[in-house]
Amino acid sequence: MRLQRVARFLILCLIVMSSGIAWQANAEYADVVLNQKSEKEGVRPVIFPHWFHRIRFKCKVCHAELGFKMRVGSNHISMENITAGEFCGACHNGDVAWSADECDLCHSGKPGLKTGIRGGHETMGPGIW
């Protein structure tokens, strides 16, 4: 009986994982959608590509030095923070990287996307991320 339950659970997991691949096959692994404030403020959601940034910076730069918590949705960042040189604004200041007036380069997501971490290749975890 218990074995049956375990088997059913495993089959369910397989189905969820397979359908996850179908739904999310396109996004690059660890792409982050940030849309807690964006669309309410009338701009597209932000797509943050981890892959692009980790080629140039170690994890510690953003997650220790700049203070980004390692959980999607837990950093409540406003454009005021960024133009004041905090968070993204530590680099996106026209010096290290493009400045914060290049709205469309970060606010580049499709309308309606939900905040969360995405990815293609076998990354389907629970929705907590």
Partner: peptide, 26 residues
């Protein structure tokens, strides 16, 4: 679907389902 997902390693941004293809800055 699984094979399709595994066949191509990286999607173009304009086709990744996240980026807005109408964004001129893309």
């Amino acid at each position: 679907l699984t094979l399709t997902a595994l066949a191509s390693n990286w999607q173009k941004l304009a086709e990744d389902g996240l980026h807005d293809p109408t964004n001129p800055a893309l």
